[in-house]
Design a protein around this nucleic acid. Structure first.
Lengths: 260, 260
DNA sequence: ACGTTCGTTCACGCTCCGTGAACAAGGTTT
DNA sequence: AAACCTTGTTCACGGAGCGTGAACGAACGT
């Protein structure tokens, strides 16, 4: 993968004001809405300062103001959807995800690596009323999901090393693989079958199967996965049926991206 | 509507650095990717300055760096989808939109007013391969779409006045209503039937029908709309069939939001 | 081999960010 | 009612840090 990573903790080659603005944005993103004082306590700045930042974000239309409380606005959705729309891998995978969700009756996802995490680009649920335990745009640790492990398995050795180093292997459930060498053998077996499994390693009661999407050098650029509740994801389906269809979807996406 | 608006052009109660950061973000959002020099020319700042902002955004993981070129990352999608997920009107309308798209075979949308524009919260297409001429999170002028006009018709008189004042009535096609008084009578007829029409006023070859979603005081909080190409949107459907089903969807959403 | 353009870095000067206090408005407690 | 919170907003001031312009090496195109 060609992505360049942020240098580790440089002193001050950054715009500090911008950092605090985004700190406030992120604090806001964790709640429905909030007032100036609450946010000031949260980020540890003077009320006046936070007020100035919020006014700025409001003026720019990134924040909505309801009387005395502030919340994030939908402009972020516009930015994010625009970003996705321009991603070649998304454009090529879109149709396949609809088909995969339909064919399996479960949830189909496209994930890409970004900044050492896995980012869900698109998730399609066969049952439109159901909401999976994650959402589009969310970032997850690569070692704890099927798609993430598929990506990790097909990264270069030092990219992989660096991800494990900087992001760590935190446990999310009691099944999460947190041991470096155990993960190493798991990744090898993923390469052997070109399929990755998540056996309740991210969320209890939740299982996934994934196939990597690679470039012509066999380096990961993403992954497609099918997820469902433990009861419905029987051995027969996860081991025989699903790997086949996601594998062919993955290679079809690769062809569209790289042929000609 | 309770939304408070940005005060008109105050001197300097804002964080200027944050404004330039977002200027850069917005310049980036208009292209697939870009380099430092190109962006510096675009926003009219020194290369060094732009580089510092990009480094900051990269460090915060909002921008991805591929070698020497920068592009927006998927974190914006995460923020945006999170914002939407918390919107009560979205949660209540979600199921209805799926149903409406299915029942009509066209595109169903939810729009809400924000900062004097209409923001598409969710769009569901019956034909999953088809992409409508707008995307989720996008903002449009209220006077030029069915959903927007439905919202405009059910705003308080001075909110409506202020929107027309600050956002104007720019022509988007040759059918766009750009005359204040013509728009006034159009809005009255919308109130008469509780349904709004877009007859290629936003995009040529594209027609919509919308119904307002109002609070108990009959003020607009959003709108549902059905859109399709001119050929398929026959008179019979737009005048008889569609208004009925979107009207009942709208009142069902209102009930879920406000009863008890 | 030259010229151009690129991204990145740095010292400096002046802008402007962050602070803390003060204010009015609205709520709650006494 | 009166005293006491807490809220959002404003402001003058001092010092941090933003923006500039120049300089650097690297990568291309000529």
């Amino acid at each position: 993968m060609t992505e360049t990573r942020p240098e580790d903790e440089r002193p001050t080659r950054v715009a500090k004001t911008t950092m605090t603005s985004f700190e406030i944005v992120e604090a806001l993103s964790e709640r429905e809405s909030a007032g100036v004082s609450e946010l000031a306590r949260e980020v540890g700045l003077a009320k006046g300062t936070v007020h100035k930042h919020l006014s700025t974000l409001h003026r720019l239309n990134y924040v909505v103001k309801d009387g005395d409380s502030y919340r994030l606005g939908l402009r972020f959705l516009g930015l994010g959807v625009g970003v996705r729309k321009r991603l070649p891998i998304y454009r090529r995978a879109r149709g396949h995800l609809e088909h995969l969700a339909e064919a399996t009756g479960e949830v189909a996802n496209l994930m890409v690596p970004e900044h050492g995490y896995g980012a869900y680009v698109r998730t399609v649920s066969a049952d439109k009323g159901y909401e999976p335990p994650f959402h589009e745009g969310e970032r997850v640790h690569l070692h704890a999901t099927a798609g993430g492990k598929a990506i990790l398995a097909y990264l270069s050795a030092d990219d992989r090393e660096r991800v494990m180093e900087t992001r760590g292997l935190p446990p999310l459930t009691e099944n999460t693989i947190t041991d470096r060498s155990a993960l190493g053998t798991e990744l090898q077996s993923i390469r052997d079958r070109r399929a990755a499994y998540d056996r309740e390693e991210h969320t209890e009661g939740w299982r996934c199967v994934a196939a990597p999407i690679t470039d012509p050098t066999d380096a990961a650029i993403g992954a497609v996965s099918i997820c469902g509740s433990t009861e419905r994801m029987t051995r027969r389906r996860t081991d025989a049926d699903i790997p086949g269809i996601i594998g062919s979807a993955a290679s079809s996406i690769e062809n569209k991206l790289f042929s000609r």
